[in-house]
């Protein structure tokens, strides 16, 4: 069965370009594109898509806010952020509210497809910048006892990631399988999201 892909992107050229490319690729289907977060929020919950490519800099409502509102309503959909720059801050914020990964707009089309497959399989790519951001985020919130803590192994993995090591190298270095490394990274993302929700709740209360 084909993977169903949605695209939220306000730049017409990019939106149509990717849609054409993805739709023409074997194993992918891309029939739904949206040029605003508002439209996406209305229609995506009804579509049960596998993966949504989400631009961060949308007019009016940002892609980050859009993921934050859509994720609880579409638990089976994976959100892949699509950015012009590797803007760590924005990507990090998107990851906190439920995005599963990110790619830049200059990523080669083949790699875009790879990233879609990877994220659908449950992989969560993490760059060295993001890894560092996560380490410091867990460090600053360590006083809060309600928050989830990182395990020693997760800290080790984050440390290597932040130094620019790739999954395969980390697996070799720590005598783990690449799959185990992936699982750890998924767990780190999950903790990050739980913590950001707890923090958000604490702010409200």
């Amino acid at each position: 069965m084909n993977l169903t892909i949605g695209i939220v992107e306000d730049e017409k050229n990019i939106r149509e370009g990717i849609a054409l490319l993805v739709d023409a690729s074997e194993g992918f289907e891309c029939k739904h594109t949206f040029d605003s977060a508002e439209e996406a929020m209305q229609k995506i919950p009804l579509l049960n898509l596998d993966v949504v490519l989400m631009d961060i800099n949308l007019p009016e409502i940002s892609g980050i806010r859009c993921v934050e509102l859509l994720k609880p309503r579409c638990p089976n959909t994976q959100f892949l952020m699509f950015t012009s720059f590797e803007d760590t801050e924005s990507v990090f914020n998107a990851l906190k509210v439920g995005a599963n990964g990110y790619i830049t707009k200059t990523t080669q089309p083949v790699k875009i497809l790879d990233a879609i497959i990877d994220i659908h399989k449950g992989g969560s790519p993490m760059s060295s910048h993001i890894a560092r951001k996560i380490v410091s985020s867990f460090q600053t919130t360590k006083t809060n006892t309600e928050l989830e803590k990182l395990s020693t192994r997760e800290v080790e993995i984050l440390d290597l990631l932040s130094k620019g090591f790739r999954y395969k190298e980390i697996a070799n270095q720590l005598f783990l399988s690449t799959e185990t490394v992936r699982t750890h990274i998924r767990n780190i993302y999950a903790k990050l999201q739980v913590n950001s929700r707890t923090e958000a709740l604490n702010r409200v209360c």
């Binding site: 720059f85 590797e86 803007d87 760590t88 801050e89 760059s127 060295s128 910048h129 560092r132 932040s162 130094k163 620019g164 090591f165 790739r166 190298e169």
Partner: peptide, 19 residues
């Protein structure tokens, strides 16, 4: 990009990019 650039970041990025 408003982010700070550090020596650590550069060295990590070189490793990451090369891989």
């Amino acid at each position: 990009n408003p982010e700070n650039t550090t020596l650590f970041g550069l060295v990590s990025r070189i490793r990451e990019y090369s891989s």
